[in-house]
Computed example of a mutant assay.
Amino acid sequence: MTATPAGPVAERESAAGSVAEFVAESVWSGDQLDLDAYLARIGYTGGLEPTAETLRGLHRAHTAAIPFENLEAALEREVRLDLDSVQRKLVTERRGGYCYEQNSLFAAVLERLGFVFTAHGARVRTAGPTLRPITHVLLRVVVDGAEWIADTGFGGPGTLEPVEVRVGTPTWQGGWAYEVAEEAGGVRVLRSLGARGWSDLYAFAPNPLYPVDVVILNHFTSTHPLSRFTGQIVVQRVTPQARYSLVRDELTVTRAGAADGAEERRKVSAAELSEVLESTFGLVIAAADIERLGRLHDPAR
Protein backbone atom coordinates (compact mmCIF):
# COMPACT_ATOMS: atom_id res chain seq x y z
CA MET A 1 0.00 0.00 0.00
CA THR A 2 1.40 3.38 -0.93
CA ALA A 3 1.24 6.41 1.29
CA THR A 4 -1.69 8.76 0.75
CA PRO A 5 -0.41 11.81 -1.16
CA ALA A 6 -0.70 15.35 0.13
CA GLY A 7 -2.60 18.11 -1.64
CA PRO A 8 -6.08 18.67 -3.09
CA VAL A 9 -6.44 15.08 -4.25
CA ALA A 10 -5.75 13.73 -0.76
CA GLU A 11 -8.40 15.99 0.72
CA ARG A 12 -11.05 14.86 -1.77
CA GLU A 13 -10.03 11.20 -1.52
CA SER A 14 -10.39 11.36 2.26
CA ALA A 15 -13.81 12.94 1.94
CA ALA A 16 -14.82 10.23 -0.53
CA GLY A 17 -13.92 7.42 1.84
CA SER A 18 -10.23 7.00 0.98
CA VAL A 19 -10.85 5.67 -2.51
CA ALA A 20 -7.08 5.70 -3.06
CA GLU A 21 -6.76 2.68 -0.74
CA PHE A 22 -6.70 -0.02 -3.41
CA VAL A 23 -5.15 -3.46 -3.58
CA ALA A 24 -1.39 -3.63 -3.28
CA GLU A 25 -0.95 -5.31 -6.66
CA SER A 26 -1.19 -2.51 -9.21
CA VAL A 27 -1.53 -3.95 -12.72
CA TRP A 28 -1.60 -0.56 -14.50
CA SER A 29 0.80 1.26 -12.12
CA GLY A 30 -1.96 3.29 -10.55
CA ASP A 31 0.07 3.36 -7.32
CA GLN A 32 2.76 5.40 -9.16
CA LEU A 33 0.37 7.96 -10.63
CA ASP A 34 0.72 11.66 -9.82
CA LEU A 35 -3.03 12.16 -9.60
CA ASP A 36 -2.84 15.86 -8.67
CA ALA A 37 -0.75 16.60 -11.77
CA TYR A 38 -3.06 14.56 -14.00
CA LEU A 39 -6.21 16.28 -12.74
CA ALA A 40 -4.58 19.68 -13.22
CA ARG A 41 -3.55 18.72 -16.76
CA ILE A 42 -7.11 17.86 -17.78
CA GLY A 43 -8.76 20.58 -15.69
CA TYR A 44 -10.96 18.18 -13.72
CA THR A 45 -12.34 19.33 -10.34
CA GLY A 46 -15.20 16.89 -9.83
CA GLY A 47 -15.62 13.98 -7.45
CA LEU A 48 -13.25 11.02 -7.25
CA GLU A 49 -15.62 8.27 -6.17
CA PRO A 50 -15.65 5.28 -8.58
CA THR A 51 -19.06 6.11 -10.07
CA ALA A 52 -20.44 6.49 -13.59
CA GLU A 53 -20.58 10.26 -13.07
CA THR A 54 -16.88 10.38 -12.20
CA LEU A 55 -16.03 8.13 -15.16
CA ARG A 56 -17.90 10.40 -17.56
CA GLY A 57 -16.36 13.56 -16.13
CA LEU A 58 -12.79 12.26 -16.23
CA HIS A 59 -13.19 10.85 -19.75
CA ARG A 60 -14.71 14.07 -21.08
CA ALA A 61 -11.98 16.23 -19.52
CA HIS A 62 -9.17 13.93 -20.69
CA THR A 63 -10.42 13.85 -24.27
CA ALA A 64 -10.82 17.63 -24.38
CA ALA A 65 -7.34 18.30 -22.99
CA ILE A 66 -5.03 15.65 -24.47
CA PRO A 67 -4.99 15.25 -28.27
CA PHE A 68 -4.29 12.12 -30.27
CA GLU A 69 -0.86 12.23 -31.93
CA ASN A 70 1.85 9.91 -33.25
CA LEU A 71 4.71 12.40 -33.51
CA GLU A 72 7.26 10.30 -31.61
CA ALA A 73 6.69 7.37 -33.99
CA ALA A 74 6.81 9.74 -36.97
CA LEU A 75 10.16 11.01 -35.68
CA GLU A 76 11.38 7.39 -35.40
CA ARG A 77 11.73 7.59 -31.63
CA GLU A 78 10.91 4.88 -29.14
CA VAL A 79 7.37 5.15 -27.77
CA ARG A 80 7.61 4.04 -24.14
CA LEU A 81 4.58 2.86 -22.18
CA ASP A 82 5.90 2.73 -18.62
CA LEU A 83 3.85 5.12 -16.49
CA ASP A 84 6.76 7.47 -15.76
CA SER A 85 7.33 8.01 -19.50
CA VAL A 86 3.63 8.37 -20.30
CA GLN A 87 3.09 10.85 -17.45
CA ARG A 88 6.13 12.88 -18.44
CA LYS A 89 4.98 13.17 -22.05
CA LEU A 90 1.20 13.59 -21.73
CA VAL A 91 1.03 15.38 -18.38
CA THR A 92 4.29 17.22 -17.64
CA GLU A 93 5.26 18.09 -21.24
CA ARG A 94 1.57 18.61 -22.21
CA ARG A 95 1.91 16.48 -25.32
CA GLY A 96 -0.60 14.01 -26.75
CA GLY A 97 -0.33 10.36 -27.63
CA TYR A 98 -2.03 7.47 -29.38
CA CYS A 99 -4.23 4.76 -27.90
CA TYR A 100 -1.58 2.76 -26.05
CA GLU A 101 -0.30 5.86 -24.25
CA GLN A 102 -3.68 7.50 -23.69
CA ASN A 103 -5.49 4.45 -22.40
CA SER A 104 -2.51 3.25 -20.34
CA LEU A 105 -2.61 6.59 -18.53
CA PHE A 106 -6.39 6.48 -18.15
CA ALA A 107 -6.16 2.90 -16.88
CA ALA A 108 -3.71 4.03 -14.18
CA VAL A 109 -6.19 6.74 -13.17
CA LEU A 110 -9.12 4.31 -13.00
CA GLU A 111 -7.05 1.80 -11.05
CA ARG A 112 -5.95 4.48 -8.60
CA LEU A 113 -9.56 5.49 -7.98
CA GLY A 114 -10.82 1.95 -7.48
CA PHE A 115 -12.75 1.32 -10.71
CA VAL A 116 -13.30 -2.25 -11.93
CA PHE A 117 -12.17 -2.56 -15.54
CA THR A 118 -10.32 -4.63 -18.13
CA ALA A 119 -8.42 -3.69 -21.28
CA HIS A 120 -9.28 -5.24 -24.66
CA GLY A 121 -7.68 -5.34 -28.07
CA ALA A 122 -9.76 -4.20 -31.03
CA ARG A 123 -9.75 -4.60 -34.80
CA VAL A 124 -10.26 -1.21 -36.45
CA ARG A 125 -12.98 -1.18 -39.13
CA THR A 126 -12.95 2.43 -40.32
CA ALA A 127 -11.47 1.35 -43.66
CA GLY A 128 -14.27 -1.15 -44.32
CA PRO A 129 -15.07 -4.81 -43.61
CA THR A 130 -11.63 -6.23 -44.44
CA LEU A 131 -10.26 -8.30 -41.55
CA ARG A 132 -7.49 -6.30 -39.94
CA PRO A 133 -5.09 -7.16 -37.10
CA ILE A 134 -5.66 -6.07 -33.52
CA THR A 135 -4.00 -2.67 -33.31
CA HIS A 136 -6.21 -0.73 -30.91
CA VAL A 137 -6.71 -0.90 -27.14
CA LEU A 138 -9.77 0.23 -25.18
CA LEU A 139 -11.03 -0.14 -21.62
CA ARG A 140 -14.26 -1.87 -20.50
CA VAL A 141 -15.45 -0.51 -17.17
CA VAL A 142 -18.14 -2.02 -14.93
CA VAL A 143 -19.62 0.61 -12.63
CA ASP A 144 -23.00 1.40 -11.07
CA GLY A 145 -24.41 -1.88 -12.37
CA ALA A 146 -23.62 -1.10 -16.01
CA GLU A 147 -20.87 -1.85 -18.51
CA TRP A 148 -19.11 1.00 -20.33
CA ILE A 149 -16.61 1.36 -23.17
CA ALA A 150 -14.04 3.94 -22.06
CA ASP A 151 -11.63 4.96 -24.79
CA THR A 152 -9.63 8.19 -24.58
CA GLY A 153 -7.30 7.20 -27.43
CA PHE A 154 -9.16 6.51 -30.67
CA GLY A 155 -8.58 9.93 -32.14
CA GLY A 156 -10.85 11.90 -34.45
CA PRO A 157 -13.67 9.36 -34.89
CA GLY A 158 -13.59 8.51 -31.19
CA THR A 159 -15.91 9.26 -28.32
CA LEU A 160 -16.03 12.25 -26.01
CA GLU A 161 -17.39 10.22 -23.09
CA PRO A 162 -17.75 6.53 -22.24
CA VAL A 163 -20.44 4.64 -24.14
CA GLU A 164 -22.74 2.41 -22.12
CA VAL A 165 -22.98 -1.09 -23.57
CA ARG A 166 -26.68 -1.27 -24.42
CA VAL A 167 -26.87 -3.13 -27.72
CA GLY A 168 -28.70 -1.19 -30.41
CA THR A 169 -29.36 1.88 -28.23
CA PRO A 170 -27.82 5.09 -29.64
CA THR A 171 -25.93 7.47 -27.36
CA TRP A 172 -25.56 11.12 -28.33
CA GLN A 173 -22.44 13.05 -27.29
CA GLY A 174 -22.66 16.62 -28.52
CA GLY A 175 -23.37 16.36 -32.23
CA TRP A 176 -22.12 12.75 -32.50
CA ALA A 177 -24.03 9.50 -32.05
CA TYR A 178 -22.61 6.07 -31.11
CA GLU A 179 -24.05 2.64 -30.50
CA VAL A 180 -22.84 -0.83 -29.59
CA ALA A 181 -23.67 -3.90 -31.68
CA GLU A 182 -23.01 -7.52 -30.81
CA GLU A 183 -21.69 -10.30 -33.06
CA ALA A 184 -21.05 -14.02 -32.68
CA GLY A 185 -18.65 -15.14 -29.96
CA GLY A 186 -19.39 -12.19 -27.70
CA VAL A 187 -17.70 -9.71 -30.04
CA ARG A 188 -18.79 -6.12 -29.40
CA VAL A 189 -18.71 -3.45 -32.10
CA LEU A 190 -18.59 0.29 -31.48
CA ARG A 191 -20.39 2.17 -34.26
CA SER A 192 -20.74 5.83 -35.21
CA LEU A 193 -23.54 7.63 -37.05
CA GLY A 194 -22.48 9.67 -40.06
CA ALA A 195 -24.13 11.31 -43.03
CA ARG A 196 -24.35 7.91 -44.77
CA GLY A 197 -25.72 6.03 -41.77
CA TRP A 198 -24.11 3.81 -39.15
CA SER A 199 -20.58 2.54 -39.69
CA ASP A 200 -18.27 0.39 -37.57
CA LEU A 201 -15.35 1.98 -35.74
CA TYR A 202 -13.87 -1.19 -34.20
CA ALA A 203 -14.71 -4.64 -32.85
CA PHE A 204 -13.35 -6.33 -29.72
CA ALA A 205 -13.66 -9.74 -28.09
CA PRO A 206 -14.19 -10.57 -24.37
CA ASN A 207 -10.62 -11.75 -23.65
CA PRO A 208 -8.66 -9.13 -21.66
CA LEU A 209 -5.27 -7.58 -22.41
CA TYR A 210 -2.57 -6.63 -19.93
CA PRO A 211 0.27 -4.09 -20.08
CA VAL A 212 2.70 -6.74 -21.38
CA ASP A 213 0.35 -7.35 -24.32
CA VAL A 214 0.07 -3.65 -25.07
CA VAL A 215 3.87 -3.39 -25.26
CA ILE A 216 3.88 -5.92 -28.13
CA LEU A 217 1.11 -4.10 -30.02
CA ASN A 218 2.92 -0.81 -29.49
CA HIS A 219 6.15 -2.18 -30.96
CA PHE A 220 4.45 -3.03 -34.27
CA THR A 221 2.50 0.22 -34.41
CA SER A 222 5.46 2.47 -33.67
CA THR A 223 8.14 0.73 -35.77
CA HIS A 224 6.76 -1.46 -38.56
CA PRO A 225 6.88 0.07 -42.06
CA LEU A 226 3.31 -1.13 -42.74
CA SER A 227 1.94 0.71 -39.72
CA ARG A 228 -0.02 3.86 -40.61
CA PHE A 229 1.71 5.60 -37.70
CA THR A 230 5.22 5.40 -39.15
CA GLY A 231 6.46 7.67 -41.91
CA GLN A 232 3.66 10.21 -41.62
CA ILE A 233 2.06 12.65 -39.19
CA VAL A 234 -1.29 11.70 -37.64
CA VAL A 235 -2.79 14.22 -35.21
CA GLN A 236 -6.49 14.26 -34.30
CA ARG A 237 -9.03 15.59 -31.84
CA VAL A 238 -12.79 15.49 -31.40
CA THR A 239 -15.03 18.18 -29.90
CA PRO A 240 -18.83 18.25 -29.51
CA GLN A 241 -19.04 20.32 -32.70
CA ALA A 242 -16.27 19.04 -34.99
CA ARG A 243 -13.58 16.43 -35.65
CA TYR A 244 -10.11 17.57 -36.68
CA SER A 245 -7.59 15.32 -38.41
CA LEU A 246 -4.14 16.11 -39.77
CA VAL A 247 -2.73 13.18 -41.75
CA ARG A 248 0.60 13.87 -43.43
CA ASP A 249 -0.06 17.30 -44.98
CA GLU A 250 -3.87 17.32 -45.20
CA LEU A 251 -6.09 18.87 -42.52
CA THR A 252 -9.69 17.63 -42.50
CA VAL A 253 -12.49 19.22 -40.48
CA THR A 254 -15.80 17.35 -40.19
CA ARG A 255 -18.69 19.31 -38.69
CA ALA A 256 -21.30 17.57 -36.58
CA GLY A 257 -24.71 17.39 -38.23
CA ALA A 258 -23.46 18.02 -41.78
CA ALA A 259 -26.28 16.29 -43.63
CA ASP A 260 -24.37 15.91 -46.88
CA GLY A 261 -21.25 14.56 -45.19
CA ALA A 262 -19.24 17.51 -46.48
CA GLU A 263 -15.74 17.90 -45.09
CA GLU A 264 -13.41 20.86 -45.18
CA ARG A 265 -10.00 19.82 -46.50
CA ARG A 266 -6.87 21.83 -47.09
CA LYS A 267 -3.16 21.26 -47.47
CA VAL A 268 -0.88 22.33 -44.64
CA SER A 269 2.56 23.43 -45.74
CA ALA A 270 5.69 22.67 -43.75
CA ALA A 271 5.90 26.39 -42.91
CA GLU A 272 2.40 26.27 -41.38
CA LEU A 273 2.88 23.07 -39.43
CA SER A 274 3.93 24.58 -36.11
CA GLU A 275 1.05 27.06 -36.08
CA VAL A 276 -1.56 24.42 -37.01
CA LEU A 277 -0.33 21.99 -34.35
CA GLU A 278 -0.60 24.71 -31.71
CA SER A 279 -3.81 26.48 -32.74
CA THR A 280 -5.85 23.44 -33.80
CA PHE A 281 -4.49 20.71 -31.54
CA GLY A 282 -2.91 22.55 -28.61
CA LEU A 283 0.55 21.08 -29.23
CA VAL A 284 3.73 23.11 -28.89
CA ILE A 285 6.58 21.21 -30.56
CA ALA A 286 10.29 22.08 -30.45
CA ALA A 287 11.61 23.86 -33.55
CA ALA A 288 14.11 21.08 -34.34
CA ASP A 289 11.30 18.51 -34.31
CA ILE A 290 9.10 20.72 -36.49
CA GLU A 291 11.94 20.85 -39.01
CA ARG A 292 12.18 17.05 -39.08
CA LEU A 293 8.40 16.63 -39.27
CA GLY A 294 8.32 19.12 -42.12
CA ARG A 295 10.39 16.72 -44.21
CA LEU A 296 7.51 14.23 -44.00
CA HIS A 297 5.39 16.86 -45.79
CA ASP A 298 8.00 17.49 -48.43
CA PRO A 299 10.71 14.78 -48.68
CA ALA A 300 12.70 17.03 -51.02
CA ARG A 301 13.40 19.52 -48.21
Results as ranks from 00 to 15, higher is better:
residue 1 M to H: 03
residue 5 P to F: 07
residue 9 V to S: 05
residue 10 A to N: 06
residue 14 S to R: 09
residue 15 A to G: 15
residue 17 G to S: 07
residue 21 E to Q: 03
residue 22 F to G: 11
residue 22 F to C: 10
residue 23 V to F: 03
residue 28 W to A: 12
residue 29 S to M: 01
residue 30 G to F: 13
residue 31 D to A: 15
residue 31 D to C: 11
residue 32 Q to M: 09
residue 33 L to W: 13
residue 35 L to R: 08
residue 47 G to V: 01
residue 48 L to V: 14
residue 48 L to Y: 10
residue 49 E to Q: 15
residue 51 T to G: 05
residue 54 T to E: 14
residue 54 T to L: 01
residue 58 L to E: 15
residue 65 A to M: 09
residue 70 N to E: 15
residue 72 E to W: 02
residue 74 A to Y: 01
residue 74 A to H: 02
residue 75 L to R: 08
residue 75 L to M: 04
residue 76 E to S: 08
residue 79 V to M: 07
residue 84 D to G: 14
residue 85 S to G: 07
residue 86 V to W: 04
residue 86 V to H: 09
residue 87 Q to D: 12
residue 89 K to T: 11
residue 90 L to S: 11
residue 94 R to I: 00
residue 97 G to E: 13
residue 97 G to C: 08
residue 100 Y to W: 15
residue 101 E to R: 15
residue 103 N to H: 09
residue 108 A to G: 14
residue 110 L to F: 13
residue 111 E to R: 07
residue 112 R to A: 15
residue 112 R to T: 08
residue 123 R to L: 09
residue 124 V to T: 06
residue 125 R to C: 10
residue 125 R to Y: 05
residue 126 T to I: 12
residue 126 T to F: 02
residue 127 A to Y: 09
residue 133 P to N: 02
residue 133 P to V: 00
residue 135 T to Q: 05
residue 137 V to F: 10
residue 138 L to C: 13
residue 140 R to G: 09
residue 142 V to Y: 01
residue 142 V to H: 12
residue 146 A to K: 09
residue 149 I to M: 11
residue 150 A to M: 08
residue 150 A to N: 06
residue 151 D to V: 11
residue 154 F to G: 02
residue 156 G to L: 00
residue 157 P to W: 08
residue 158 G to V: 00
residue 162 P to I: 06
residue 163 V to I: 06
residue 164 E to V: 07
residue 167 V to A: 04
residue 167 V to K: 00
residue 169 T to N: 01
residue 170 P to I: 06
residue 171 T to G: 02
residue 177 A to L: 03
residue 178 Y to L: 10
residue 186 G to Y: 14
residue 188 R to C: 12
residue 190 L to P: 15
residue 191 R to M: 14
residue 193 L to Q: 15
residue 193 L to I: 10
residue 198 W to H: 11
residue 199 S to G: 11
residue 199 S to V: 07
residue 205 A to L: 08
residue 215 V to P: 04
residue 218 N to L: 07
residue 220 F to H: 06
residue 222 S to A: 08
residue 224 H to Y: 02
residue 225 P to V: 07
residue 226 L to F: 01
residue 228 R to S: 02
residue 230 T to G: 05
residue 231 G to H: 08
residue 239 T to K: 02
residue 240 P to N: 06
residue 248 R to Y: 04
residue 253 V to G: 00
residue 254 T to A: 00
residue 255 R to I: 00
residue 256 A to L: 08
residue 258 A to R: 13
residue 260 D to V: 07
residue 265 R to Q: 09
residue 268 V to H: 04
residue 273 L to T: 07
residue 277 L to V: 02
residue 281 F to T: 00
residue 282 G to N: 06
residue 283 L to Y: 01
residue 285 I to T: 09
residue 285 I to D: 01
residue 289 D to L: 02
residue 290 I to M: 10
residue 292 R to L: 14
residue 298 D to I: 02
residue 299 P to S: 04
residue 299 P to I: 00
